[in-house]
Design a protein around this nucleic acid. Structure first.
Lengths: 204, 204
DNA sequence: ATCTTATTGGGAATTTAATCACAATTTGAT
DNA sequence: ATCAAATTGTGATTAAATTCCCAATAAGAT
């Protein structure tokens, strides 16, 4: 069953909440989730229909089993191997971001063109020369790359990376990439996200 | 006029594209934007209706004027002051992220509780003791904080920050925050974003 | 001058997402 | 045993977002 993207996003947030409740509370209601996220409680119940878990009238949803069901449903325990392209500030921060591991996102290696960075290790992830990506993509069967290079190199690097066999690019740069049709790009547009957040409030 | 959030996000991406075209091309068509972002071209034209800029039949939209209009419309030139709470990997990376400046996002100062970090300077931004935030929020009139502390401290720090007068929290942690009603939280859920990207592709 | 083609603008239709409303259920209190 | 309250599940409704469609326009070719 394919779950709508927005539902996936909310399910991960319910999981964050469950993480905090586990151990201290046995049940949680849709209203509790709804209040945390400022959404309608029936929305929550509809979302939870996607994971195979039913609530109890007058009581709510069982914390532990719901948490486990979301994990199964979204594959948190399934390892998703990725490369990080660009061992700069953001790339390094993401390499050190432990929450990725908790959700199955496994950084296999990093790539850069800076000789001072190549050969070093960041949080246990080795930094390779970008020209090695072709060889390593094939050898390790990695299909996903996180792109964190400076804007001015983003297009060039993305094209290079696409040629190596990478099929999914999670793009953290402010460059909109032009890549072959068989490569899927997901723009993590932080600027846009901030503006969505603040745009309709004039006192920022 | 309030612009829907999704439109705001796409407008910033059109701007990214225009940034690359400026100087080399005079006109751009809705189809060109649409192809870059894999969306329908009439969607692009409807988005562009929100900024006061009309296209020319058979030619498209003028690159320079459209770029300028988007900037005006979304307030890229208007300074938006923010604090970064948490001078760890992600906080430091965001403090060094120059694209923020280009879009008017101005990091005024950083806060942490680690004595080794307090007093240092990251990309020109001074790191203060978190207990100073109350004083500085008032003095500098800052209303927005970027939260990048470790998950286990997120709720505690968010409550503290909210008490200082901060009204907007851009939350990069994997903790869903419980804050007073007059504080608006925007969850930058990277885990959820990644799963939205990859969930319906089974070969990751 | 006429034709072809690329493009906009915008109405209509469709699809997707969110909200509302309420019956059914279950718990705990009286 | 009865009643009040909290909660789920879901059908109906509303709202928002996207796509489809095509007339109108203007550029460039013939």
């Amino acid at each position: 069953m394919t779950i709508p993207e927005k539902v996936i996003n909310r399910l991960t947030m319910y999981h964050f909440i469950l993480e905090d409740m586990e151990g201290s509370e046995k049940y949680v209601s849709s209203t509790k989730f709804a209040n945390f996220l400022n959404i309608d409680n029936s929305q929550v119940r509809k979302d939870l229909k996607y994971v195979d878990n039913q609530g109890k009238c007058r009581v709510g949803f069982e914390v532990e089993s719901l948490k486990r069901k979301i994990e199964e449903c979204l594959g948190f325990k399934k390892t998703k191997d990725v490369f990080i392209i660009g061992a700069g500030n953001l790339g390094s921060a993401l390499a050190k971001y432990d929450s990725f591991n908790d959700y199955g996102l496994n950084v296999i290696a990093m790539f850069d063109k800076d000789l001072k960075k190549i050969g070093t290790t960041i949080n246990g992830k080795k930094v390779f020369d970008i020209v090695k990506i072709n060889e390593l993509t094939g050898k390790m069967g990695v299909k996903t790359a996180i792109l964190t290079v400076p804007r001015e190199f983003a297009q060039e690097v993305a094209s290079y990376v696409a040629k190596s066999g990478i099929k999914y690019i999670w793009n953290f740069t402010t460059c909109i990439l032009d890549v072959p049709k068989d490569v899927k790009v997901w723009n993590e547009n932080l600027i846009g996200s901030f503006l969505q957040f603040t745009q309709n409030d004039n006192d920022i």
